[in-house]
């Protein structure tokens, strides 16, 4: 009856000095460390019991696009679980060509904020199930948006940012999430600039605010330090999936360990 809660490893892929696609993992959000080969990592996570796999293309240049699509295809050949690909998707053609390369879903952030019609076009052309809207939320304590209570009692609103949190847009994350759903987004991918890299847990008020505002599945991201954080975001915020990168990449916790922890506490997972 109930769908299982999903555990999703994510890789950030960039090109190295030789133009080869490599996985980098952020430590404290800026210091990117080389952590491996995308295809090898995809194969390992597929074997380790990941429920889905997310591939984010973080190349700054447009030239890398072709190499990245080849890498997406190589990854798609190794994972027999749903594959989401994000990064630099701005047009309907980008969506179609990324799916053609082997992705099951595309994750769109800036491209949708700049032109919300892209969500509608994408959903009409490839179906809502393939359109994931990603937000990079940042806490703001001024009066720019609707405020939500924080755990420590202080309230804030959540702003959509671009360029890895360096630039604000003034758009309210919760209102934008509802609009994205209205336009045909099939899932929402909620990153927190404040929680990213801290390993102090997901941003619960943020995730809960989005979950309360939409009925499409919500994937919580940023801040996962271990199994208890995944448990918290499922039970306290109502997330449908929990995404993590560094805890898996650096072998601090295994997917099975996270799922066992959840299973023992009554959270439905696929094991």
């Amino acid at each position: 009856m109930t769908l299982t809660k999903r555990i999703i490893p994510c890789i950030d892929v960039d090109l190295d000095e030789n133009g080869d696609a490599k996985v980098y993992t952020g430590v404290n959000f800026e210091d990117l460390q080389y952590t491996g080969d995308p295809v090898e990592m995809a194969r390992a996570y597929n074997r380790a019991g990941a429920d889905e796999f997310v591939f984010l293309d973080i190349t700054a240049s447009a030239d890398g696009r072709e190499t990245m699509l080849d890498t997406v295809s190589a990854v798609a050949d190794e994972v027999f679980i749903p594959l989401t690909v994000g990064g630099g998707i701005r047009t309907k053609a980008d969506i179609v060509e990324t799916l053609r390369a082997g992705a099951d879903k595309v994750s769109i952030n800036t491209g949708a904020l700049q032109r919300p019609g892209l969500i509608t076009e994408g959903a009409e052309s490839v179906g809502s199930q393939a359109i994931v809207i990603s937000v990079d939320a940042r806490r703001r304590y001024d009066e720019g948006g609707e405020h939500y209570e924080q755990v420590d009692g202080e309230s804030c609103w959540f702003e959509c940012t671009v360029k890895g949190g360096r630039e604000g847009t003034g758009t309210d994350v919760v209102a934008w999430s509802a609009e994205a759903e209205e336009r045909g987004a099939g899932e929402l991918f909620v990153n927190s600039i404040d929680a990213d890299g801290t390993k102090d847990g997901y941003d619960i008020p943020l995730t809960r605010a989005v979950c309360d505002a939409v009925s499409t599945p919500v994937i919580a991201s940023s801040g996962c330090g271990g199994p208890e954080d995944a448990y918290e975001v499922f039970t306290e915020a109502g997330a449908d999936a929990a995404l993590a990168a560094s805890i898996f990449h650096f072998d601090e916790h295994s997917i099975d360990e996270v799922k066992r922890y959840l299973d023992e506490r009554g959270v439905p997972v696929r094991r």
Binding site: T4, D51, P217
Partner: peptide, 10 residues
Amino acid sequence: EVKVPHMGWN
């Protein structure tokens, strides 16, 4: 009772 589409592992 449930969200449609049915999307996920069952």
